[in-house]
């Protein structure tokens, strides 16, 4: 019970920031239910744009493609990332610090640079644009998030549990399956959700790597916005942001990312 610093003003400030962060999203969501194609007020409720969206094969294909890419990316990134996290946690070896440091370039370097570099390189090795290229790129971007999340969970793992299991005669595989993996499961779930979100929301890298006419949902939206957008885009955008917020909400519950006390 300490006396808060300038409490009223502070809370007002916080409220204003929440308005700033959410108001445009709310407006977009509201407008996706507005009958007028020109965002005219007064507002009159209609689900017309959702119907049109559902009837637009381009949007539906792109959405399905985005989801399937995200699922594949999640699977690969979670498997590879978890294995790497366990190895980084369990063993001490020379160069470990360097390996941990190498996780940051994919996060810290602007995606514009990474994306264009991938584009050039994939063309040079003959892979070119297309869904495989997008998947390879997305996995690389998602891996650091998975590793960081799973490692955070592992840091509270008591390594003597593994030793105890071994002393009772369990082999390496049994120890992993019965002791280690159950412990890090929440971290893996959170990591997988992060990976899904990174891929599903990814625009920049997909933009450079996807085949024209074969694009993911964000790329389709970008192209549509630049052509002069229609409220169907509103509808699909509203769905996307709802889905991605829901995923992140669950992920943060699992990973307790920051802010617990």
């Amino acid at each position: 019970m300490r006396r808060p610093l300038l409490p009223v003003l502070g809370r007002l400030w916080l409220a204003l920031i929440l308005v700033f962060l959410y108001a445009p999203i709310m407006v977009m969501a509201a407008m996706s239910f507005n009958a007028s194609p020109f965002y005219q007020l007064p507002f009159s409720f209609s689900t017309r744009w959702y119907a049109e969206m559902a009837g637009n094969p381009q949007i539906i294909t792109a959405a399905l493609r985005s989801v399937s890419i995200a699922l594949v990316v999640t699977l690969i990134a979670t498997a590879l990332g978890t294995a790497a996290s366990i190895a980084l946690f369990r063993y001490d070896f020379r160069g470990k610090k360097v390996l941990q440091l190498l996780l940051f370039p994919p996060i810290a370097i602007p995606w514009l640079i990474t994306g264009t570099a991938m584009l050039i390189f994939f063309f040079a090795i003959g892979l070119g644009r297309g869904t495989p290229a997008v998947i390879i790129g997305h996995v690389a971007l998602a891996l650091p998030y998975v590793i960081v999340t799973v490692t955070a969970r592992l840091s509270s793992f008591d390594i003597t549990l593994e030793e105890a299991a071994r002393s009772m005669g369990a082999g390496g595989w049994t120890v992993l399956r019965r002791v280690t993996l159950p412990w890090i499961a929440p971290g893996m779930v959170a990591g997988a959700l992060f990976a899904f979100a990174v891929s599903f929301d990814q625009f920049v890298v997909s933009y450079f790597l996807s085949q024209p006419g074969d694009s993911t949902l964000p790329v389709l939206i970008y192209t549509a916005i630049r052509k002069g957008f229609t409220p169907e885009i509103n509808a699909i955008s509203t769905i996307i942001i709802t889905v991605s917020m829901a995923i992140m909400f669950i992920a943060t519950r699992y990973s307790r990312f920051g802010g617990e006390r």
Partner: peptide
């Protein structure tokens, strides 16, 4: 809860959020 509310948009689709500003 408030902390989660503040960082939640950050983890959502940035393209869509920019698009929402275009509407506003």
């Amino acid at each position: 809860t408030l902390f989660l509310l503040v960082i939640l948009p950050f983890w959502s689709n940035s393209l869509v959020r920019i698009f929402s500003w275009a509407i506003v």
